[in-house]
Design a protein around this nucleic acid. Structure first.
Lengths: 339, 339
DNA sequence: TGTTCTTTTGACAACGTTGTCATTATCCTA
DNA sequence: TAGGATAATGACAACGTTGTCAAAAGAACA
């Protein structure tokens, strides 16, 4: 690789002068600058970031530590958002996927430290609480899609309660009264929070929520869920007094409800309105009719995580805001107005 | 950050001795080692990778340059595969998403060079030819999901022709004779190659392919496609002599064929067999019945890209194998045997 | 012309690490 | 116990860069 020394020798000036030119220092004669620039171009000089860092220059690399975010279709938008915010300043993302393996994670923290990354975004696939653990890393850490338990870290989470509220409110406002609910597994925060939001919307509308219509669309432990939405929907829709709408805990759950409805020869949205959650494009845009859903603002979370991290540099110890990012309703064709 | 010097001072030995211990050099007295290890632990020393690189140690970071691979659900498995191969050697991936913007891409190449990354995987969302361009980067570059035009680089691409063959062969072997085809846009290599494979399977089976059943499931230019599979399938299935099976250019296309079939009250696979391509889990595992498809071996491509890169270090200039990675058939419930 | 001020340039050290080589301590053998 | 071999340790330089400070070259003025 070309070094400053080589360029300097070729240009007949000192190393320091070339360094000045590379860094745009104005205190250098225009003539000198021009002649050196030529050599810089010709040799295709690119500064050695490692050497710069040794001189105390901050790294331009951020770390993204995740259980699986970067590699599942569900929340990959966190990565996209973070990269969009980063690229404006010519910074990059070092991505580490622990796949939930704690030992791997420790190893990755080591690696981030070895690289002296400027900050770390810790993102999880599910909205949950997470303990970053020992002061393994004192530098700026921002939690995305999870929040700190124990040590205090700034965090960004989707407003699941607001999202749940939006789901129910939309259906209630459009005249639905008998509304089914097909949730994710109860253990995760998202389920609990959305449940609260949904019930609040019912209360605000003065409608009683029939708890017998609250069913799980998925069952099992956190990383080993299995989908039972099809069977649950079938059962719910075969009741005499079947619901006119079903709120789903996830677009994939809604996917199965479509199938169940088709099986029962119920057409969407004439006979049944369906409301999703996540706005996973592969599903929402390919269903017939396209799915009305509440979007998880992953891109926004990624973008703001980077901003938060930049801010955190100027903050004192213990600064740990927990920011709720709103989940907007995306209206498509799967919900109808009851006259 | 803790340095060797600090540890050395605290332990009462020289910097070099600590360095030896950190690097597992056996030529150090056991007693010394033990006492220094304690301080290493206490101070939580982590070597400065930047300083190491200055001493000529190779970077442990690889670059992944992509148009969008890392951030679309379709081919994110390339990333997973690469990371799986990397993590065995404690190496990481620096991910750069150009979003197809050539200027951004140049900027990212600069960044990779500045970081002195060890090698670069260049991955594209679509199987296509790609010109890496000027000798901007002489080091090891491997193309994933695309192949070199112009300069010669080693590359890994899915065996689309074999995949197409597998799609058709499976249906033909199960007694289907009248088979529809709903392709992706014709411009991309995948479409052309799979078409060749499909026709070869027909020929091998001694069956004539009815070209009138060859329709586009998607239309438009490369980055602005629109889905027309639903309408196309509807039309195809309303013919008097409708096909008993439809081969799709993508699982998302198959998704729409399911919808069209449901609309026409045709049940899958009784009345219609459907064959996908890609094995995009979000779709294939959520459809009812689950979709029989041919998998794109993205994980494998990512994994082997890393291996290829490692190999390429020991090869001479101009070494540029183009490797076809097989696309296996994944049998689920959407294709039936005609008696 | 000499003096002072400003602009431009370069010598040198330092960042944290490791390779080279020299030095010291320890052990073995005759 | 001397002599030689081996084991353990450390001094020093170098990697490529930039901050500090001093020197050199011009410019401005009396």
């Amino acid at each position: 690789m070309v070094t400053l020394r080589e360029v300097a020798k070729l240009s007949g000036v000192s190393i320091k002068t070339v360094s000045r030119i590379v860094n745009g220092d104005p205190a250098v004669n225009a003539k000198t600058r021009d002649s050196v620039q030529v050599h810089l171009q010709n040799l295709n000089y690119v500064p050695n970031q490692a050497a710069r860092m040794m001189r105390g220059v901050q790294s331009s690399v951020y770390g993204l530590m995740t259980d699986a975010v970067a590699t599942t279709p569900y929340s990959v938008d966190i990565v996209r958002g973070a990269q969009a915010a980063l690229k404006e300043q010519n910074q990059t993302l070092l991505i580490a996927n622990s796949n939930g393996d704690a030992e791997q994670e420790v190893e990755f923290w080591r690696m981030f430290r070895a690289q002296r990354v400027r900050g770390v975004i810790y993102a999880s696939v599910f909205h949950r609480s997470h303990n970053v653990g020992r002061p393994a890393f004192n530098d700026s850490i921002v939690l995305a899609n999870c929040y700190a338990s124990g040590s205090d870290r700034p965090s960004l989470v989707p407003d699941d309660e607001g999202g749940g509220y939006a789901q129910a409110e939309h259906l209630l406002r459009n005249g639905h009264r008998r509304i089914g609910l097909l949730t994710l597994i109860p253990k995760i925060d998202a389920t609990r929070l959305r449940g609260i939001g949904i019930r609040r919307a019912f209360k605000d509308a003065g409608v009683t929520f029939d708890e017998s219509l609250n069913q799980q669309g998925m069952i099992g432990p956190v990383h080993g869920e299995s989908m039972v939405a099809y069977e649950a929907a079938l059962k719910m829709l075969q009741q005499k007094n079947r619901p006119t709408a079903i709120i789903c805990g996830h677009d994939a759950v809604a996917f199965h409800v479509y199938a169940a409805a088709a099986h029962l020869r119920l057409s969407v949205p004439q006979d049944l309105s369906i409301m999703g959650f996540d706005d996973l494009k592969v599903i929402t845009e390919n269903l017939h009719p396209r799915l009305t859903t509440v979007a998880l603002p992953y891109f926004e979370i990624g973008r703001r995580a980077v901003e938060l991290m930049r801010e955190s540099t100027h903050q004192k110890e213990g600064w740990a805001p927990k920011i709720l990012v709103p989940c907007p309703l995306v209206e498509r064709g799967s919900c109808r107005t009851l006259s």
